[in-house]
Amino acid sequence: MSLEENTAVHLHKDDKASKLGMWLFLLTELTLFGGLFLMYAVYRFTHQAEFHIAAKSLNTFIGTLNTSILLTSSLTMALSITAIRKGNKNLSLSFQGITIFFGLLFLLNKYFEWSHEINIGNFPGSESLLSKSQGEILFYGLYYVMTGLHALHVIIGMIVIAVMMRFTMKNIINRNDNFKLEAAGLYWHLVDIIWIFLFPLFYLIS
């Protein structure tokens, strides 16, 4: 009995510490992307007109579509946590699955977008890009680094959610103990927040 009690107390404390740890990790992500946003701010300030020209070739429709996809995936992630807290395991699993599906859709759009840019020669080091102005070269450098790093986060997020689905199936994540799923959700929402800023800064400035 006493062991069980101890375990319960321990788990409870663990959750709070884990939450703080997860948030600390998210704040380090803020410094990672924050540095890139600082760089973007400086180059945009010093090359304003050229950034506007460079952004013209980006597809606003795909950008808007991807924003909606990511926002909706954040919704399904949040819903999956509510579902598991209400004890609805299968519903939670479906929501987690839908979240991964939206992540895939996002990456698929990204793939079409990048292929289009590469086809028309807008990739770092290409001759046609190098012949353009300094500002345009910087814009595409930042575009690939920032959306690429973001896409990498989407991929990691999808893998994490897949692991959470496995945990949910095995009842390791359940009605009473679901912090793992919540932490995965926090990560996914952070990825969403980063995109909320990337979207207007790259797609809506032409």
Binding site: S74, L75, A78, G185, L186, H189, L190, D192, I193, I196
Partner: peptide, 12 residues
């Protein structure tokens, strides 16, 4: 504003 909504509601 969008970030505020995500932080306060989705991220609890």
């Amino acid at each position: 504003i969008k970030t505020y909504l995500v932080l306060t509601i989705f991220m609890h």
